[in-house]
Design a protein around this nucleic acid. Structure first.
Lengths: 348, 348
DNA sequence: CTGAAAGCGCTTACAG
DNA sequence: CTGAAAGCGCTTACAG
């Protein structure tokens, strides 16, 4: 492989001149610039990334820590990863993807060895083990997900409280008076998935404020359990006219459940989910939803991270905690409840 | 950040001794080894990856090129990625994930700059643009997917021909005489997704050999099109008693389609899919299937790649093309056709 | 068993 | 506008 020494020799200049000609960091005569460019072309020269990293202390790589938990719905993760990866590339960075079980060890490894210029943490728990390590690292970090303690990192998340309120408020305004909310599995909450109760608590509170009934339940993250739970909830609350879904697996299972009960949305039941548009397309979900914007969150996290990496002034700027407002995407599954409740349809 | 010089100073030895004490590449007195270990602990020393890469020409990173095509079902990709990522880590390697649209440019960038010790290519097309670049690179490459020309790379893929034969043969033996095969979209074929017609041609041939009818059709990769196509096929061939699915989106859509027609598998229709067990769980697909083994293929590709990277003798060993035999996973959706065809059930 | 030195391939002050 | 040299942090022959 050609080195910058080869380029310099062929161009008839010193290595420093060749380097400057390529980086443009100092004035170079037109003639020399062209000789260097020709040599580069001739040799197919590309700088050695390791050598450059050693000399500049910049790797142009961002570490992406993603954990695939048993109790989380894997396809939903993919969109965050793609949002991060694509944005990073646009800004000139590559992605070191770490899916190791032991996130703390992995994080220490890639930061201590300086393989990366910054870190994006996905799947952040309320009290995340990885955060102390990230704070101690010399590279900046950006999170997707809200921990209890946000010091020292930039944080991006959906405004789950607002999402919970929005879901309840929409249905209340249309005249619904009894709702069911299916959340993520309780394991997720126990592990510290704060977003589950952030949405749920806000929904419960909003329901109280409006004087309506909300039955909240933790759903499973997989089939067939989650389908059975949906049936059970619908059996248990025949007067409920609205269904709120903060659980990807439940959303994916719902069409089959409704179908098998002979129910149609919104005629028999109004439904609002919380997932991304991409997710809705993949699973062809016909339900209106609160957009969870994984690509946008990934993009925001990377942009802020790169600002901190590149703009030395940004290192001292205060860290941000930024919430994306939930947007309601209308897919026609929400309407006023029919005057003659209760619902028809039962478990087949 | 501490360097090996700091370690050496604190341990009271030379840098080379510190280095050897850590690598174990030459005999070190017990006492010195312990002083070095203590210094490492005290400083929290971790070698700088860039410096090590420069000195050893080994980055301990594997490049993973994954393309997310519009007409492919993204969740299916994830399992290949995880198989590769997890196996790489077990073997001591990290993953540079590249999802760039322009795969050839990306490949050139990461190989020329020596960011990686080897390359895993996913989504390999029959005549893949990236292959000439990979062959020209100094790093070894392993593919998941079968191109027309396998020279200079190690290739791993499901035996799609065998899968096609197996699907037809199973149903033929049970007495089925008219089958429908839904393949991936025609775009995938045009782009060079050879596996589509490898399975299809083998299925068609096997049907001919057995003297039975096989209606082959290209399905769409998304909803609602693919659901409508399934309906159309079932409408068009009321005598067909078996359905073969080589299309993830079609498989995911099928439960709803069958349900809405009032059909049950295997009573009204025998169904065999071609997807992974993990995929079946995620989408709770109740159909027997030919296992596509993405995790196993990813694992095989990485193992072979690491062999070539680490064992210099392996560099000259002949390249391999290895097919994973399709395994039939029984989920109870296959049985003898009922004596009184035709099928009941129509588009609702 | 250990140390001094060269070298990996860059970038960037320093000097002219 | 250009060059000679130092340095980034490692590893590994070479020498003892």
């Amino acid at each position: 492989m050609a080195t910058i020494g080869d380029v310099a020799r062929i161009a008839g200049v010193s290595r420093s001149t060749a380097s400057y000609a390529l980086s443009g960091k100092r004035a170079i005569s037109e003639e020399v610039r062209e000789r260097v460019a020709a040599a580069v072309r001739e040799l197919g020269y590309t700088p050695n990334a390791g050598a450059r990293a050693l000399a500049t202390s910049q790797t142009m790589v961002i570490g992406l820590l993603a954990q695939f938990m048993e109790d989380e719905f894997a396809p939903a993760m993919l969109q965050y990863i793609l949002g991060v990866s694509n944005t990073a590339r646009e800004l000139g960075y590559d992605i070191l993807l770490v899916t190791e079980e032991d996130g703390t060890r992995a994080l220490r490894r890639i930061t201590d060895s300086r393989m990366v210029d910054g870190i994006v943490l996905l799947n952040v728990a309320e009290d995340d083990d990885r955060l102390p390590i990230l704070r101690a690292a010399s590279q900046p970090g950006a999170l997707v997900g809200l921990p209890a303690d946000c010091t020292g990192v930039d944080v991006f998340d959906l405004d789950f409280e607002e999402a919970g309120r929005l879901m309840v408020e929409r249905l209340h305004r249309l005249g619904h008076r009894e709702l069911i909310l299916v959340s993520q599995p309780e394991h997720v909450v126990e592990r510290g998935g704060a977003y589950v109760w952030r949405l749920q608590n806000a929904a419960v509170e909003q329901a109280q404020n409006r004087g309506i009934t909300l039955h909240a339940v933790f759903g499973s993250s997989g089939q067939p359990e989650v389908g059975q739970q949906l049936h059970a909830m619908l059996d248990a609350h025949p007067e409920a006219t609205g269904l709120l879904i903060n659980n990807e697996a439940a959303a994916a299972a719902l069409p089959t459940v409704l179908h098998s009960r002979g129910l149609t949305a919104p005629e028999d039941l109004s439904v609002i989910g919380r997932y991304s548009d991409e997710f809705a397309r993949t699973f062809s979900l016909p339900f209106s939803s609160v957009e969870s914007a994984p690509d946008r969150l990934g993009r925001m996290a990377v942009r802020q991270l790169v600002r901190r990496i590149e703009h030395s002034g940004a290192a001292t700027e205060p860290h941000v905690v930024r919430f994306v407002s939930p947007e309601f995407v209308d897919r026609g599954s929400v309407a006023s409840p029919r005057p003659t409740s209760p619902r028809h349809g039962g478990r087949p």
